[in-house]
Design a protein around this nucleic acid. Structure first.
Lengths: 213, 213
DNA sequence: TTTTGTATAGGATTATTTTCCTTTAATGTC
DNA sequence: GACATTAAAGGAAAATAATCCTATACAAAA
């Protein structure tokens, strides 16, 4: 992902909005002239686009305690972006040739022509982490592991979800389905208990995306 | 992390080196004047530092198929950086008050004063992904899930690891310990089989860091 | 050693961005 | 509605970045 002209200005506008400022006030906060970010100054009379210098952007980010990465998130129209153009090598567990792909140190030989996936990275609004502090969900979610929870991802059958009851426990399990009033869940405890939960008693449901080991 | 003057120029130099180019050749590749990135032009005669415009940097990154994030990695003096100054909210599973922290949509209320962790993001040399294509390791590593493997992380007791045999299968399990000749592993199949593997028959061992759900 | 091409220093010029300034528009308070 | 303040449009001037050009240095090939 590069930062295009449009994205830069979107980032500026979104950053100002996030801080509850106008573009004019944001510029001032950064020690710049208040007219710096006027929409009227983003293109010249000849249509030539005005970019920003890295120095100017640096001043803005420093004044608002915003990292470059935060800025990129604000600038992008998609939150989840690949981290690297080169991606992450992907190995198939059932590939009978896979032992030939590695050297002695479990490092993939660079010349190997394997598939790639985008680096998984987690820049989603509202995302939070859940630290397991019980052995109830060993070995699937061992004590001490971190679960990354996304409240906004759509939930489909067989997805793993966290369910917070209005009164009572938080449950972790596999989503089996739902009706108007009931949510069916197979817990990920050792017992794999099947539960039918009344939606009226559920505070929220969210998708589990990743688990640390 | 903001991008300081020094980091920008370090990023340019490191990017050129990565692509096997001189700064001069990199500028040319980006359609800029070959003298653009001369060290002699990074400061004026009065000592005034010369920054780059976002437009120029954009041209360089586009010409070398480099993402902004890649550039930031090259610009920084550390490979692993926190990804956001604000971090990821961390919730404790056993916290009896946790249901009060969320709104109806499983989103954390912003005013809540909860702990934070660095965004877990994975930009480590040598890292690769393993896609599960068998049900042998359900429900811990369900079919279709991705395992993120780091060949360089130190392995301690109870860490989850992938073991590739010289001849034979890849095994996934919990590291129990080792002697000079033997590695003890508790597999993460349903049976939780205990294995004592001869090191001489092991091609490699690597740490499992994260699992998708 | 000579030749050729690239890399780099450095000055002058041009183009672009930022600042300064003025005016108009929008918003909030009394 | 009147007034004050901020926001935004827009022009001119100043500052900065990029380009053009020349010369020197360096590296590789013949």
């Amino acid at each position: 992902m590069t930062l295009s002209y449009f994205e830069i200005w979107r980032g500026i506008d979104n950053l100002a909005a996030q801080k509850g400022l106008s573009p004019s006030a944001l510029a001032q906060k950064a020690g710049l002239d208040p007219t710096s970010f006027n929409k009227s100054k983003r293109e010249g009379p000849d249509g030539r686009k005005r970019w920003l210098s890295m120095e100017t952007l640096n001043k803005v980010l420093a004044a608002t305690n915003t990292s470059f990465l935060d800025f990129m998130m604000l600038a992008g129209d998609k939150i989840t972006q690949p981290l690297s153009s080169t991606g992450l090598p992907l190995i198939n567990f059932s590939d009978n040739q896979k032992e030939n792909l590695f050297n002695r140190n479990a490092m993939l030989d660079e010349e190997q022509n394997v598939g790639k996936i985008d680096f998984p990275c987690f820049f989603k609004p509202g995302m939070w982490a859940l630290e397991m502090t019980t052995e109830t969900y060993d070995p699937v979610y061992p004590k001490g592991s971190l679960l990354l929870i996304d409240p906004q991802t759509e939930i489909r059958r067989h997805d793993r979800i966290v369910v917070q009851m209005e009164k009572g426990p938080m449950l972790l399990g596999e989503f089996l389905g739902k009706t108007n009033e009931i949510l069916d869940l197979k817990t990920l405890t050792t017992e794999r208990t099947l539960l039918s939960l009344k939606k009226a008693q559920i505070a929220f449901v969210a998708r589990i995306l990743w688990v640390s080991q």
